[in-house]
Design a protein around this nucleic acid. Structure first.
Length: 323
DNA sequence: AAGTCACTCAACCGCAGGACG
DNA sequence: GCGTCCTGCGGTTGAGTGACT
């Protein structure tokens, strides 16, 4: 026995909203304010589900919403947030004034995901796809197997399209090419200057391999990684493990390609996320790796704290689940 | 010009959690 | 503690539209 429907679906209008309907919502909200959405259709004279009214208001009619396209700064912030917290769209949207979770989610699914794929970055793990290929080969015991070995059916590689698998075959070349040729989109938050070392990879690895499409990353590494390996086919992902946020607290994070090697602790790295996103949201690249603008009560910190807590209690968890 | 395909984004769906009686 | 209502959230769908053949 499931939950009863919120309204009589057969008697409510669905689909696109008309100007008249929008006007009715706007007029009602102007007088009564938001809230009690289940009553609004009746009171405002709308033949719509209250939930539908709420969504229309939240995602479209709210006066504080932006309706223009996403700026490069906003895109960068979305990617950085997604790398850290995964598909928690509402949380990401809160970092972007005037944007809704739906906006962010749609933009991610239609633009940013493809953008990352083109760059040879797995949009779920934010790791180079070639690295994921290596993981796949290692875990499946195909260290010596050629790329002709197809992934299992539940792999993300076969879930949506064959081009992903094809891309992975070519990914070594693709991300190497990208590093060498593409304009710099990302900035290094640990640097006071724009870097020629653009990416921040997390090392949360299991998504692709267990076939889930969930994309909640556990925590953040702000370490920037440059060209993973000049001789791409041999790049050593232990280098990435050095910046793995799930490693013990005293693990060092190596900022590869930087003149200086940062010894950020995990905790420092966590703290940096907020300053990073705060600063990015103001189009101002943070220069302080210790994250002085950190707020202990922020959602990110709570998430990261939970992750840490879980990891300390269930160290095997990362190996078994994508959470 | 017509048909097909790919993409975008508004809207829907179902679930979860908090508030309240 | 339980049930109900309301709201928030993330995943998914499908109509509309432009590009391509």
């Amino acid at each position: 026995m499931g939950r009863p429907p919120c309204c009589d679906k057969s008697n409510v209008k669905k689909g696109l909203w008309t100007e008249e309907e929008d006007a009715k919502i706007l007029a009602y909200v102007a007088i009564h304010g938001v809230g009690n959405w289940s009553l609004i259709p009746k009171k405002a004279g709308l033949n719509r589900c209250g939930k539908s009214c709420r969504l229309r208001w939240t995602n479209y009619l709210r006066p504080d919403l932006k309706h223009d396209s996403f700026s490069p700064q906003e895109e960068e912030l979305i990617i950085q947030c997604h790398r850290v917290i995964g598909s928690r769209w509402s949380s990401i949207a809160r970092k972007l004034p005037g944007r809704t979770d739906n906006d962010v989610k749609n933009h991610w699914n239609t633009k940013l995901k493809k953008k990352l794929m083109k760059m040879g970055i797995d949009p779920v793990t934010h790791k180079p796809v070639s690295q994921v290929v290596l993981e796949f080969r290692n875990i499946s015991g195909h260290e010596n197997a050629s790329f002709k070995a197809e992934p299992s059916n539940n792999s993300i590689l076969t879930q949506s399209n064959s081009s992903a698998w094809e891309m992975m075959r070519n990914t070594t070349m693709s991300h190497e090419t990208y590093y060498n040729n593409s304009p710099m989109i990302f900035t290094n938050p640990t640097s006071s200057e724009f870097q020629t070392t653009p990416f921040h990879f997390s090392n949360h690895s299991n998504h692709l391999l267990n076939g889930t499409t969930s994309s909640c990353s556990s925590s953040s590494s702000s370490a920037s990684i440059t060209q993973p390996n000049q001789g791409a086919t041999n790049f050593c992902w232990n280098d990435y493990l050095l910046s793995d946020p799930v490693l013990p607290q005293n693990s060092q994070i190596q900022v590869v390609g930087s003149s200086a090697t940062s010894n950020l602790t995990f905790a420092q790295n966590e703290l940096h996320f907020n300053s990073l996103t705060e600063c990015s949201s103001h189009n101002n690249i943070d220069t302080n790796a210790s994250g002085t603008s950190h707020s202990a009560s922020s959602f990110v910190d709570e998430i990261l704290d939970k992750d840490q807590e879980m990891l300390s209690q269930f160290p095997q968890l990362l190996n078994d689940f994508d959470y």
